[in-house]
Design a protein around this nucleic acid. Structure first.
Length: 236
DNA sequence: GCATTAATTGGTC
DNA sequence: GACCAATTAATGC
């Protein structure tokens, strides 16, 4: 089971950037040059400040990308899943990664080296154009997140985080399809572990969510959305 | 089973 | 609302 080597042609990740452009003739020259590997749960596979080693594409599993703050606290930049790109922030301009990345569960990654990525970007305009659109979108999301942390209360930020992972990972059998520690949630919401525990405990008492260990399920999505929306309106 | 880590609760500033 | 301490639950080895 250590020999599992993902093949782009048979890959099921429709939203993967490589897969999306596989119909282009030139692309086929490059996909064989990737190298794939496993990374176990909670292990780090990308180090903040380390020299660039190309881009990572998640073949299977979930991961988080983090940035170390001034006080040593970690801020989770985003959560990622199958088909997502990791490591694109430092690409091109910097020669080092600006963020670190950890596996949330056992994952399989596909890595394209700097050299191969450069070749793709220079030779396949359609790919480059779409990547630019992707960058613009990510920048927008990132700015929105900064605004959230600045203007929303802790309770609102936690609710917002829950709605986000619910939207991103989906929910089956009354529980969201990702298991995060309270610390992970707090590092994303920009608060502390204790605050997250208290908010989650309250939301459970109010019958807005289901909680069973690390599993969380949203019960009244509209009520939760409304709470965020109302307060945003007051603040802006 | 013991040791480390995570979750929870209460308290202080 | 952050930080700290104490207790308990969960998990790793």
């Amino acid at each position: 089971m250590k020999k599992l080597m993902p093949i782009c042609e048979t890959c099921l990740n429709k939203n993967c950037f490589i897969k999306k452009h596989l119909h282009l003739e030139k692309m086929k020259n490059y996909v064989d040059k990737k190298h794939s590997f496993h990374c176990n749960k909670s292990k780090q596979f990308m180090l903040e400040g380390a020299p660039l080693q190309g881009l990572y594409f998640i073949y299977k599993g979930k991961a988080k990308t983090v940035k170390t703050g001034i006080n040593g606290r970690e801020q989770i930049v985003r959560f990622t899943k199958e088909g997502d790109i990791v490591g694109f922030r430092g690409f091109g301009t910097n020669n080092r990664y600006l963020i670190g990345a950890y596996a949330i569960e056992d994952i399989i990654l596909c890595n394209f080296s700097n050299e191969v990525m450069m070749e793709i970007l220079k030779n396949i305009p359609e790919f480059t154009f779409n990547l630019m659109l992707f960058y613009a979108e990510e920048l927008n999301k990132s700015e929105n997140n900064v605004r959230k942390i600045a203007h929303m209360s802790v309770r609102e930020r936690v609710i917002d985080t829950l709605l986000y992972i619910h939207r991103k990972f989906g929910q089956t059998n009354d529980y969201i399809n990702i298991e995060l520690s309270r610390k992970d949630i707090s590092d994303f919401a920009g608060t502390t572990e204790e605050q997250v525990i208290r908010v989650i405990s309250n939301l459970k008492k109010e019958f807005l969510i289901n909680v069973s260990g690390k599993q969380i399920g949203l019960l009244k999505i509209n009520s939760l959305r409304k709470e965020i929306f109302d307060h945003k309106y007051i603040l802006k």
